[in-house]
Design a protein around this nucleic acid. Structure first.
Length: 575
RNA sequence: GUAUCUGUAGCUUAACUGGAUAAAGCAUUCCCCUCCGAAGGGAAAGAUUGUGGGUUCGACUCCCACCAGGUACACCA
């Protein structure tokens, strides 16, 4: 039982009060924990809050368990009760960190729950852009937070391999092949990333023509049908090769990003079954026919109306999504299904989940859509490299260049053997951190100059603190001791640090429960700041308290590592 | 137009879901490497939390109105 619960318990043992708060006061001079019970009770009983608080404190001081962990309980301000924690509690926690290693901080909030989480969702034939990077960063972090809470997680990726966008891309590819007088298999000689880049260009071209020329539009729509029916061999070859290349390329990116999907779903698998569902429930009154299309009248439920099967008889994304819900359940029996996308389709998902609830109520009940903020670009120097839409890989490359410069400046680069690997980890860390550090759902104004800072509130700041800690610990002989005396005296600088370490568990639990990786970010920044301050104030190696301080250093590194893992960011020992 | 989200220091964001003197990072100004990693540390300065009401011991947080911006609203995903 953690300290907060101990206090809650002690209070509940004496008073019958349902609604009160035990929290960490913002100002540490006001104690380590505080409660507002007295104010709640005083209001109910119409008595003076300060006197009530005094009465409560007197009774709490008799509690044996509180006596054990708290050194002081006091009344303050308008009637708050403040609690001071004994140092030995914190020193005990230090041992837990060292013993717990990578498991330190795990909780059982979602013990044995089965959660499927869908994210990233790039479309074959199209560019993997920074929006996908964002979805991936958030989805991967949520997956890890949920796993950290004891759940079994299935990472799922859903990709649109059929539909008009594919036809646009293929139309573009055909145009390009004609101009170059080439056949599609000749593209195999081009490196994979360049090949995929060409397909992205082909898509852009098709999309543009689709808008601008009615002739091209007709052709593309005809292509769409042909692709769907697989009647034309040469078309099938282009489609199959292009699809494969895209998917291979995505795998490469997932590898650098640190995601491994357990299940892949494709629109080509879900469209037929989606159509069937819609037609089946059309007769049951869930859907309606209107202007040749089959729609879901969301207005009946205060939402908006959406088309599920268009007037050409083809299923839209909406219909496919219905098929997907069931397909997911068949592959992974879930207690909860989370779908991560950009927030621009929040309303769309409300309609979808409503429709789903009329078809598969149990599945709809388990489904939750999380809309993350959009990445808004503010163009700076670095993005001018290509002068085009910034692709995910392009961003990683651009950041890598800056990281390398920095490493050359500091001279550390000479001591590192696998330089490219380290650069990639730091670059990905910088990008992911900048996407995770703010509350989910809010848009991110992405400025290359400031968003990707390597100082202060940034991924590299955390990685740097880790590298520094490991370095000091290394010099101290890589010891792992847990037999230090927990009754030992500690200084203020030391206390500030270990006190903060003791909060990791509750932060990880809160982040896992609310699905808010940003809590981990701000926690880790504060931890690193405290460690850096400790470092300037307290000599570790060669000091009288060497062993204790080495363990504080090791524990700091361990928590940074565990926290970064939750963010999907890797640590490096040198950078 | 309707729905919905957002508005906090010059900029980008916090604030433990109603708590105590609103907290950081960039940027600006000043210190600190003969000592374990200066991608660091310390200090200064910077705020009428969009505006106006309301609810109560207590409001950035809840309610109402207004202002400004984003997004979505029938065959794209």
């Amino acid at each position: 039982m953690d300290l907060t619960d101990q206090i809650r318990q002690a209070i509940s043992d004496i008073y019958d009060v349902p609604d009160f708060v035990v929290e960490h006061p913002a100002d540490e001079n006001k104690g380590d924990l505080a409660s507002n019970v007295a104010m709640v009770l005083a209001k109910r009983e119409r008595v003076n809050p300060l006197e009530k608080a005094k009465e409560i404190v007197d009774r709490l001081k008799e509690s044996e368990q509180l006596k054990d962990n708290f050194s002081k309980i006091e009344v303050a301000g308008p009637g708050f009760i403040n609690f001071w924690v004994k140092d030995k509690f914190y020193l005990g926690k230090l041992k837990e960190v060292i013993e717990g290693k990578n498991d330190f901080g795990k909780n059982l909030d979602r013990n044995k729950e089965r959660v499927i989480i869908e994210f990233t969702d790039p479309n074959p034939f199209k560019v993997f852009h920074i929006g996908h990077l964002m979805s991936n960063a958030i989805g991967e972090s949520l997956s890890r937070l949920i796993e950290f809470s004891g759940a079994r997680v299935c990472r799922a990726c859903y990709q649109g391999d059929v539909g008009i966008h594919v036809a646009k891309a293929i139309w573009g590819i055909k145009e390009m092949l004609d101009e170059q007088n080439q056949k599609i298999d000749q593209w195999e000689d081009i490196p994979l990333d360049k090949r995929v880049y060409e397909m992205g260009r082909a898509y852009a071209r098709g999309a543009k023509e689709y808008e601008e020329s009615t002739e091209a539009k007709d052709k593309i729509e005809k292509l769409n049908k042909e692709i769907y029916q697989r009647t034309d061999d040469s078309l099938n070859t282009i489609y199959d090769l292009g699809r494969r290349w895209s998917l291979e390329y995505f795998e490469k990116i997932y590898d650098t990003l640190g995601t491994r999907f357990n299940e892949y779903f494709f629109e080509s698998d879900t469209s037929e079954r989606g159509s069937e569902l819609v037609r089946e429930f059309l007769s049951k009154g869930v859907f309606e026919e209107s202007q040749g299309a089959i729609i879901f009248n969301g207005e009946k439920y205060g939402l908006h109306t959406r088309v599920f099967i268009n007037s050409m008889g083809l299923p839209t994304y909406e219909a496919k999504e219905l098929g997907l819900a069931k397909a997911k359940f068949e592959r992974f029996e879930y207690d909860k299904s989370i779908i991560v996308t950009a927030n621009e389709i929040n309303d769309y998902f409300k309609v979808l989940i409503k429709a789903l609830s009329l078809i598969y109520p149990d599945l709809a009940f388990k489904t939750e859509h999380i809309g993350h903020g959009m990445l808004k670009l503010k163009y700076g120097k670095m993005s001018s490299r290509t002068g085009e839409v910034v692709s995910g890989e392009g961003l990683i490359d651009d950041v890598s260049v800056e990281i390398k410069k920095k490493m050359e400046e500091t001279g550390k680069i000479k001591e590192i053997t696998d330089v490219d690997n380290v650069i990639k980890k730091v670059a990905v860390g910088a990008i992911k951190y900048s996407m995770l550090k703010q509350s989910p759902g809010k848009d991110i104004i992405f400025d290359f100059e400031t968003s990707l800072s390597f100082e202060g509130d940034s991924g590299p700041y955390l990685q740097y603190a880790y590298a520094r800690a490991i370095n000091i610990w290394e010099k101290g002989g890589r010891k792992e001791l847990t037999d230090f005396d927990i009754e030992t005296e500690i200084s203020e600088e030391e206390r500030q640090l270990i006190k903060w370490m003791a909060r990791f568990e509750e932060i990880a639990e809160a982040a896992g429960r609310n699905l808010t990786p940003n809590l981990i970010c701000s926690y880790l920044i504060e931890l690193s700041a405290r460690f850096n301050y400790f470092y300037t104030k307290c000599q570790v190696n060669g000091s009288e308290k060497e062993n204790l301080r080495l363990m504080m250093t090791l524990a700091t590194a361990q928590i940074i590592k565990n926290g970064l893992w939750l963010l999907g960011i890797e640590t490096v020992e040198k950078m």
